[in-house]
Simulated scan of single mutants.
Amino acid sequence: MSTIHWTESNTNSNTQRHAARWHFESSTPPPRTVVSADDRIKADTAYRLACEGTGLLWRGDYHNARQLLGSLSRRIERRTTRRPTQKPTLQDGTPAALFHLHRRSRSHRARVLGRLLVLLEDGYRLELRRAPEVRRACAEAYGPWSGPMVVPLTELLGVIGAHQWRTKGVRVPALGARIHPHYGVFSPVRGEYVDLVAQAPLPPPCATAFDLGTGTGVLAAVLARRGVGRVVATDSSVRALACARDNVRRLHLTGCVDIGGSGLFPAGRANLVVCNPPWLPARPTSAVEQGVYDPGGSMVHGFLTGLTAHLEPGGEGWLILSDLAELLGLRARGELLAGIEAAGLRVVDRIDTRPRHRRAADTTDPLHAARAAEVTSLWRLTHT
Rank of each mutant, 00 (worst) to 15 (best):
A233Q: 07
T234W: 08
T234M: 07
D235I: 05
S236R: 14
S236H: 14
S237W: 01
R239I: 06
A240G: 05
L241Y: 09
L241R: 14
C243Y: 01
A244G: 01
A244W: 00
R245I: 06
D246C: 08
R249D: 09
R250C: 02
R250P: 01
L251E: 00
H252P: 12
H252W: 13
L253K: 00
L253R: 00
L253P: 00
T254R: 15
T254D: 12
G255V: 04
G255E: 09
V257K: 04
V257Y: 03
G260Y: 14
G261T: 13
G261N: 12
S262C: 14
P266T: 06
P266L: 05
A267E: 12
G268C: 09
R269E: 15
A270E: 07
L272A: 07
L272W: 07
L272H: 06
V273L: 10
V273G: 07
V274P: 08
C275I: 03
C275K: 02
C275L: 03
N276D: 09
P277A: 10
P278S: 04
L280P: 01
A282K: 03
R283N: 11
R283A: 15
P284D: 06
T285A: 13
V288Y: 00
G291L: 00
V292T: 13
D294M: 12
D294K: 10
G296H: 11
G296P: 09
G297F: 10
G297I: 09
M299V: 15
V300G: 05
H301N: 14
H301T: 13
G302N: 13
F303I: 01
F303C: 01
F303Y: 12
L304A: 03
G306Q: 06
L307V: 06
L307I: 06
H310E: 05
P313D: 02
E316C: 14
G317V: 02
G317Y: 02
W318H: 03
W318S: 01
L319N: 02
L319Q: 02
L319I: 03
I320L: 13
I320V: 15
S322A: 02
D323Y: 02
L327F: 06
L327V: 06
L328K: 08
G329M: 03
R331H: 04
A332P: 00
R333Q: 15
E335G: 11
L337S: 13
L337K: 14
G339H: 09
I340S: 04
I340L: 04
I340N: 04
A342N: 14
A343F: 07
A343I: 07
G344C: 05
